[in-house]
């Protein structure tokens, strides 16, 4: 098995036909909002990385440009749909999100702190889980399916109003044990290819994987509009895709494992700007 894995890795990594280094470029949204795409690694990561970098730096010129202007960014179509849902009454209580939270701009900064410990529930929650808590317990509405249309549109809309603010998820206190579980998952090799998240995104970012650039796997840009499927993609769905590609059985979007992994991966990007909805391959 080890030999086969080695052969695969050699094929995947050694066929670098072009430089896959991150570009030296700055992202300014709509000519006004400066996005931090490169910054010193957070303290907990200092043994592994000196600098953390947004996936934006690993994309081509045209893809980077597409994200710099909200009109050019097709992800904003779905942000608008999320904003419409924000103002739409749903459920038995006759309320919309806006009934309690007012204008969506009031949520600026919220996305930057998720996943986050919820004292009352005694668990770490993702933003989508918190939205569903509101829907079920305050609005009397059905919960949205994890990472599916309505949920991902709302996450993108909430992310959009936080763009430019630094990711700042708490990893200590009551969130610590979940964070440690996420860290363990990050470094655990899975599947027939025996690859952990770290094998690609910590040890080999900046190298080619087949014909594409390996990034650090940061999630500050999620939800992302991917050119390959021309829709918004959630972080959990991306985790699932990665793990599936190691030829393993995967966890489900919304599972406790992915909640923990999201917290850990988000914490690796503490200090980068919230960027979603970003554009990626």
């Amino acid at each position: 098995m080890r030999k086969l894995t080695g052969a695969f890795l050699a094929t995947l990594m050694a066929t670098s036909i072009a430089s896959a280094d991150p570009v030296d470029d700055n992202l300014i949204l709509n000519e006004e909002t400066e996005i931090v795409t490169r910054t010193a690694a957070p303290a907990h990561l200092s043994d592994a990385l000196d600098e953390v970098m947004s996936g934006w730096l690993f994309r081509g010129t045209e893809t980077r440009a597409m994200q710099a202007d909200d009109f050019d960014n097709p992800g904003m179509i779905f942000v608008e749909q999320g904003q419409d849902a924000w103002n739409t009454v749903d459920g038995s209580e006759g309320k919309s999100c806006a009934s309690c939270h007012n204008d969506m701009d009031s949520m600026a900064g919220v996305k930057a702190t998720y996943p986050k410990w919820n004292d009352a529930a005694g668990e770490v929650r993702t933003l989508q889980m918190q939205v569903n808590d509101c829907r079920e317990n305050r609005m009397g509405a059905d919960p949205w399916k994890y990472d599916k249309g309505d949920a991902i549109n709302m996450e993108a809309a909430l992310s959009a109003v936080s763009r430019g603010l630094p990711v700042n998820v708490a990893i200590d206190g009551p969130a610590q044990s979940t964070w440690e579980k996420g860290k363990e998952l990050y470094y655990t090799r899975t599947g027939q290819l025996e690859l952990s998240c770290a094998n690609c995104h910590e040890d080999n970012y900046g190298n080619m994987i087949r014909a594409d650039h390996l990034s650090q796997g940061q999630i500050n840009g999620f939800p992302v509009y991917r050119l390959k499927n021309t829709k918004l993609n959630g972080a959990h769905s991306r985790f699932k895709g990665c793990i599936r590609d190691t030829r393993a059985e995967t966890y489900k979007p919304g599972s406790a494992e992915f909640v923990a992994l999201e917290l850990y991966v988000a914490s690796r990007g503490n200090g980068l700007s919230v960027e979603g909805p970003s554009i990626r391959n």
Binding site: K3, L4, G6, A7, F8, A10, T11, L12, T15, I17, R210, A211
Partner: peptide, 21 residues
């Protein structure tokens, strides 16, 4: 490294995909 049929297929497929015919 043992050069097995399976390895050869895996590497051949990788090379084809990279070449972008």
């Amino acid at each position: 490294m043992e050069f097995t049929r399976r390895n050869a297929i895996a590497m051949g497929a990788g090379a084809l995909l990279v070449a972008g015919l």
